[in-house]
Design a protein around this nucleic acid. Sequence first.
DNA 1: TTGTTTGTTCGTAATTTTACGAACAAACAA
DNA 2: TTGTTTGTTCGTAAAATTACGAACAAACAA
Lengths: 108, 108
Amino acid sequence: MNRLEPFTEKQLQISRLAKALSHPVRVFVIQFLAEQSCCYSGDLTDILPIAKSTLSQHLKELKEAGLIEGELETPKIRYCLHKENWEIAKENLKSFINIDISCSSDCK
Amino acid sequence: MNRLEPFTEKQLQISRLAKALSHPVRVFVIQFLAEQSCCYSGDLTDILPIAKSTLSQHLKELKEAGLIEGELETPKIRYCLHKENWEIAKENLKSFINIDISCSSDCK
DNA sequence: TTGTTTGTTCGTAATTTTACGAACAAACAA
DNA sequence: TTGTTTGTTCGTAAAATTACGAACAAACAA
């Protein structure tokens, strides 16, 4: 993809969001935070059997996608879903899955 | 992630679906097929400025994710959204984005 | 048979992702 | 000061992703 940009901004947003959610650890973290009333101060490596540096990497990706943020609560960090951006992400996903499919009958 | 499997099947499904949608070409193809009443017989490389082998690779990924299928219509292939699996994918995404977030007030 | 059309597969290269342990930094307690 | 806790950054390695052109295969037309 280097000759020209044929994609809409919405399509790029969807693909970026999908990329952020393309690993089970990251899906888990988002769901887990939602279950914890959106924030969590504990150690996620107690729950997830991955190295802390690996978790940090995944959290960084979620941060860069704007889905979560970390608030300092020394010596810990309180991770929270980013409500506003999460709403935007939800709207993007909704409009994507609501695309109308009126398949012809010969199409399984 | 080799010590143990802490993820639910749903979480794995979401991450696999997200991975399938994590590239703009693949998001484009899904939306494009939906706009074409779910099927398309033409040459997508006329629309997307990528090599045909690269497109074939992306289509393969969408096929393996179960989102599309190709029906032979020699010498062409008629690509269609896989209605049934697409419905399942939509339901999975819906239940994911409908997770309840009752953030505490100190959480942005 | 020979050529055309269409899409896949192969070979390859560059880049990105995933993962780990080690080293580091910040804030605090003893 | 020294040690503890917590999370990030660094260095590194293995694997996966993305992309291309060339070669190939299937179905048909000339």
